[in-house]
Amino acid sequence: MSETILKTEAIHTFIGQHHILQGVSFEARADAVTVLIGRNGAGKSSTLKTVMGLLPASEGKIIFKGKEIQSRKPYDIARLGIGFVPENMGIFADLTVEENMQVAMLREDAATAERLESVLEMFTALRDFWRAKAGILSGGQKQMLAIARAIINDTALLLIDEPTKGLAPIIINALIDAINQIKQHSVVVLVEQNFYMASSVGDYFFILDDGKVVHSGAMAELVQDEEMQSKYLGISKSV
């Protein structure tokens, strides 16, 4: 069993008066892709935002590389080596693709330049639109830009929130390839509703429902277990 890089222990999060997360515990193992799945409103996105510090956890611990980070500011957490791709991708539409990447770079050294080179090789479309406003990119290209921004620094952990949302199947395949490449360098935690995507890249899964983790295990088991799929993911058996 490989070591755990990120671990949350019974985190509770409120948005206004709503008790969104009611004791979420999950962990991401190094050298693996962990997928959080669940219905809309189950608390998947809120879990990622809480890890990132964008939502304050009122209770519980978040441990990254052995350090407690639940009371740190988002920018500190990011500088510890966590990259974040939010659900809406957070593209700066008025900035060019180049400027988007520059804002994301925390250092401008040789290693970053090297990473940029390999990122552009992976997402060639970004090179084509390098000096264009990011707002004109297509949905898939925006998603690529968002992921590229998140891995341009030396990120140990990458949090990606529903990258397949609203994308065409052919682009989803490209994303799967990309994530399979990325997982060579960093640990990925993925929030995903698209089970095809989840099962293609995921090694471990956690199912969230009503702000709690209700099931977890190796992805291979979930692929076998059609009953659980239909219960929590709304996938009918015929598909």
């Binding site: 964008l54 500088r79 957070g90 008025d94 900035l95 520059q102 804002v103 921004r149």
Partner: peptide, 24 residues
């Protein structure tokens, strides 16, 4: 300048700028 770009990015989405490691 880099600061200027961060400011422009912040005008669009301050939360994202924070999540990129900049002290907003």
């Amino acid at each position: 300048t880099k600061v200027g770009k961060i400011v422009r990015a912040g005008v669009e989405n301050p939360e994202m700028v924070q999540a990129m490691g900049h002290n907003i």
